[in-house]
Simulated scan of single mutants.
Amino acid sequence: MLPRFPAGRPAGRSAPRRPPVVTYGLIGVCTVVFALSPVSGLVPSRGSPLAQSCAQAIYFDRWGVIPAELWHGLLTGSALGLPRGCDTPPHLAKSPFLSVLTALFVHGSWLHLMGNMLFLYVFGAGVEQRLGPVRYAAFYLLAGYLATYGYAVANAGSTQTLVGASGAIAGVLGAYLYLHPRAQVTSVFPFLFFLPLRFPAWLVLGFWFVLQWLAARTTQTGPGVAYVAHITGFAFGFLCAAACYRQRSKLGGARAPTRGESQP
């Protein structure tokens, strides 16, 4: 299932009064970082296939998150899990806490990047418009940190590198669900011959969350998708949006809905 709705705007709502500069900026930074990485295939590679595999593994270890490092300090030697035959780097100048930030802009493949950026493009602008760019940027980073630490709590001894913006984007999805529950989202279902169908956001995002929950309960710990990070980020995003919007309503009164918009 692929949700698509331009800029994640509620059906019938007029165009945002300001462009979603933070959302577009995040998409741009993630794309540039990936394009310049040894994983993209766009940077001329040198050396043998083994050397290239080693460079990619060291890149992920350097800029990604390793849950065990968040609790026990930097890993060295064979604990890094480099491919056999790689020369172990003498020292990675890395801060485990800051690696949570850098990992939000690192992706493992073109498919990984495009999937995350599509969700951010579809839903990010609607959340940014409601929260404002500064608060939205802080919210995005905080969602990414909490999602990553949520995963690290559940996998405290894992030495598997975690990269990608999906935890932070899950926070955006949770916030969107609270702020625009009845917005119409166009979704494509492969088993229905890729027919575009429109559903309310609460159904699309609720279904997505249930899938993450079921996958987290049935998937064994190991390489793959960090479902626990998605659940943590989504729950934080929903609760944070609820707290911020309710506080705003208490301070300034409930905002009258514009034409075609439903209040949450």
Rank of each mutant, 00 (worst) to 15 (best):
M1T: 08
P3L: 09
F5K: 14
A7N: 13
P10Q: 15
G12N: 01
S14V: 12
P16Q: 12
P19I: 03
V21M: 06
V22H: 12
V22Q: 13
V22R: 15
G25E: 08
L26Q: 01
V33M: 03
A35Y: 00
L36K: 09
S37R: 06
G41C: 01
L42C: 04
V43W: 03
V43S: 10
R46S: 13
R46F: 09
A51V: 05
Q52I: 04
Q52W: 02
S53I: 01
A55M: 03
I58F: 00
F60D: 02
W63L: 15
V65C: 02
I66K: 07
P67M: 02
E69N: 04
H72C: 02
G73Y: 13
L75Q: 15
L75E: 11
T76K: 12
G81S: 05
P83I: 00
G85E: 05
G85M: 05
H91L: 14
H91Q: 15
K94C: 10
P96G: 03
L98W: 11
L98A: 09
S99Q: 03
A103C: 02
A103G: 07
S109C: 07
L111S: 15
G115R: 07
L118I: 14
F119M: 15
L120V: 08
L120N: 10
G126Q: 04
G126K: 06
Q129M: 08
R130F: 09
A143Q: 02
G144R: 10
G144L: 02
Y145C: 09
Y145H: 07
A147V: 00
A147Q: 00
T148H: 03
A154M: 06
S158P: 00
S158M: 00
Q160T: 13
Q160C: 10
Q160P: 00
L162F: 12
L162Q: 09
A165C: 13
A165I: 06
G167L: 07
I169G: 09
A170N: 08
L173E: 05
L173N: 04
L173F: 03
G174F: 05
L177S: 14
P181T: 04
R182K: 14
V185H: 11
V185D: 05
V185K: 15
T186E: 15
V188P: 10
F189R: 06
F189D: 15
P196H: 00
F199P: 00
W202L: 03
F207P: 01
W208H: 13
W208R: 12
F209C: 06
L211D: 12
W213Q: 07
L214T: 13
L214E: 13
A215L: 03
Q220E: 13
A229M: 03
G233D: 01
A235C: 09
F236I: 03
G237I: 01
G237W: 02
F238V: 07
A242I: 04
R246C: 01
R246M: 05
Q247E: 07
R248W: 12
K250H: 14
S262H: 06
